[in-house]
Simulated scan of single mutants.
Amino acid sequence: MKRREAREKALQTLFQLENTELTIEEAMSHVLDGDNDSFYEKLVRGTTEQLAQIDESLKTKLENWSLDRLPKIERTVLRLAVYELLFMQDAPSKVVMNEAIELCKTFGDEKSSKFVNGVLSKYTVETSN
């Protein structure tokens, strides 16, 4: 599975986990259809395991928004991208940002990608300094 597809499936899994009582394994099995992908699994497990730290980091970047007020798709995309930016560091930050924007264009509304771009750009400024 290509990384773009892994990110898309990870987003679907994380979104599902936030809205149900499923375990990580159950949610992953619903999305994967028997496929196994280590990048996908690392994204899902890592985002879930580091959720408290990711949310604390996001709270410092959101202006005039609380994490709870964000639409679920934007919140989930941001969490996934911030996990990659802070904990994985195997893809350039611009790639992570572009992938997050594409996910918003696919699953969000017309304002989603601009909002996510604005929040994530605060991370890329930090990492380039």
Rank of each mutant, 00 (worst) to 15 (best):
Lys2Asp: 15
Arg3Gly: 12
Arg4Tyr: 05
Glu5Ile: 07
Lys9Phe: 11
Lys9Ile: 10
Ala10Pro: 11
Ala10Leu: 09
Leu11Ala: 05
Gln12Phe: 06
Gln12Gly: 03
Thr13Cys: 10
Leu14Tyr: 14
Phe15Trp: 08
Phe15Arg: 00
Gln16His: 13
Gln16Cys: 14
Gln16Leu: 15
Asn19Ile: 10
Thr20Gln: 07
Ile24Trp: 11
Ile24Pro: 05
Glu25Ser: 14
Glu26Asp: 14
Glu26Phe: 00
Met28Ser: 03
Ser29Glu: 15
Ser29Thr: 10
His30Asp: 09
Val31Gly: 03
Val31His: 00
Gly34Glu: 05
Asp35Asn: 04
Asp37Ala: 08
Ser38His: 06
Phe39Ile: 03
Glu41His: 11
Glu41Tyr: 10
Gly46Phe: 01
Thr48Lys: 05
Gln50Ile: 00
Leu51Ile: 12
Ile54Val: 13
Asp55Tyr: 10
Glu56Thr: 06
Glu56Pro: 03
Ser57Gln: 03
Leu58Arg: 08
Leu58Phe: 04
Thr60Met: 11
Lys61Asp: 14
Lys61Arg: 14
Leu62Pro: 02
Glu63Ile: 10
Asn64Thr: 10
Trp65Ile: 06
Trp65Leu: 07
Ser66Trp: 05
Asp68Phe: 00
Asp68Pro: 01
Arg69Thr: 09
Leu70Ala: 04
Val77Gln: 02
Val77Ile: 13
Val77Glu: 09
Leu78Phe: 03
Leu80Gly: 13
Tyr83Val: 02
Leu85Glu: 11
Leu86Thr: 01
Leu86Ile: 01
Gln89Phe: 08
Gln89Glu: 14
Asp90Ile: 11
Asp90Gly: 07
Ala91Glu: 08
Pro92Ser: 15
Ser93Arg: 14
Lys94Phe: 14
Val95Asp: 13
Val95Leu: 12
Val95Pro: 08
Val96Ile: 13
Met97Trp: 06
Asn98Thr: 03
Asn98Gln: 12
Ala100Met: 11
Glu102Ile: 02
Glu102Ser: 09
Lys105Ile: 02
Phe107Gln: 13
Gly108Ala: 00
Gly108Val: 00
Asp109Trp: 06
Lys111Met: 08
Ser112Gln: 11
Ser113Ala: 15
Ser113Arg: 11
Lys114Ser: 15
Lys114Ile: 10
Phe115Gly: 06
Phe115Leu: 08
Val116Lys: 06
Asn117Ala: 13
Asn117Glu: 12
Gly118Leu: 04
Val119Ala: 04
Leu120Glu: 02
Leu120Ser: 07
Ser121Gly: 07
Ser121Leu: 11
Lys122Met: 07
Tyr123His: 05
Glu126Gln: 04
Glu126Trp: 02
Thr127Ala: 13
Thr127Asn: 13
Ser128Lys: 04
Ser128Thr: 04
Ser128Glu: 06
